[in-house]
Deep mutational scan, measured.
Amino acid sequence: MEVRTIKVFTTVDNINLHTQVVDMSMTYGQQFGPTYLDGADVTKIKPHNSHEGKTFYVLPNDDTLRVEAFEYYHTTDPSFLGRYMSALNHTKKWKYPQVNGLTSIKWADNNCYLATALLTLQQIELKFNPPALQDAYYRARAGEAANFCALILAYCNKTVGELGDVRETMSYLFQHANLDSCKRVLNVVCKTCGQQQTTLKGVEAVMYMGTLSYEQFKKGVQIPCTCGKQATKYLVQQESPFVMMSAPPAQYELKHGTFTCASEYTGNYQCGHYKHITSKETLYCIDGALLTKSSEYKGPITDVFYKENSYTTTIK
Results as ranks from 00 to 15, higher is better:
residue 136 A to G: 07
residue 206 V to R: 04
residue 297 Y to E: 00
residue 160 V to R: 00
residue 306 Y to W: 04
residue 186 L to P: 02
residue 207 M to G: 03
residue 10 T to G: 02
residue 148 F to S: 04
residue 129 N to I: 05
residue 298 K to M: 13
residue 110 N to C: 07
residue 155 Y to E: 01
residue 305 F to D: 02
residue 287 D to I: 06
residue 132 A to V: 03
residue 46 K to D: 04
residue 313 T to I: 12
residue 300 P to S: 10
residue 70 F to H: 06
residue 67 V to T: 13
residue 169 T to K: 00
residue 108 A to L: 07
residue 230 Q to H: 06
residue 261 C to G: 01
residue 38 D to C: 10
residue 129 N to H: 13
residue 207 M to C: 10
residue 258 T to I: 09
residue 185 V to F: 02
residue 159 T to S: 13
residue 32 F to M: 14
residue 284 Y to S: 10
residue 154 A to S: 08
residue 175 Q to A: 12
residue 304 V to A: 01
residue 124 I to Q: 00
residue 147 N to C: 09
residue 303 D to V: 01
residue 42 V to Q: 12
residue 3 V to F: 13
residue 226 T to K: 14
residue 236 V to L: 08
residue 32 F to P: 06
residue 89 N to H: 07
residue 266 T to R: 06
residue 131 P to K: 08
residue 128 F to D: 06
residue 261 C to T: 02
residue 54 K to M: 12
residue 124 I to P: 03
residue 160 V to N: 00
residue 112 C to P: 07
residue 207 M to L: 00
residue 177 A to C: 14
residue 201 K to N: 11
residue 90 H to I: 08
residue 280 K to T: 12
residue 9 F to V: 12
residue 47 P to N: 01
residue 284 Y to E: 14
residue 271 C to H: 14
residue 126 L to Y: 02
residue 30 Q to C: 15
residue 206 V to Q: 00
residue 283 L to K: 00
residue 189 V to P: 05
residue 167 R to K: 14
residue 32 F to L: 13
residue 314 T to V: 12
residue 265 Y to E: 00
residue 79 S to H: 13
residue 96 Y to E: 04
residue 5 T to E: 13
residue 237 Q to M: 11
residue 140 A to I: 13
residue 313 T to H: 14
residue 11 T to N: 01
residue 109 D to T: 06
residue 63 D to W: 06
residue 311 Y to W: 08
residue 129 N to Q: 13
residue 61 N to W: 12
residue 162 E to V: 05
residue 275 K to C: 08
residue 314 T to N: 15
residue 251 Q to E: 11
residue 79 S to F: 13
residue 263 S to Y: 03
residue 150 A to F: 02
residue 286 I to F: 07
residue 128 F to L: 02
residue 309 N to R: 10
residue 40 A to F: 12
residue 24 M to W: 09
residue 241 P to I: 04
residue 111 N to G: 06
residue 81 L to I: 15
residue 176 H to K: 07
residue 208 Y to A: 11
residue 117 A to Q: 04
residue 67 V to N: 15
residue 93 K to F: 12
residue 87 A to F: 00
residue 129 N to M: 06
residue 199 T to M: 06
residue 18 H to I: 03
residue 188 V to H: 07
residue 258 T to E: 15
residue 253 E to F: 06
residue 261 C to M: 04
residue 6 I to A: 12
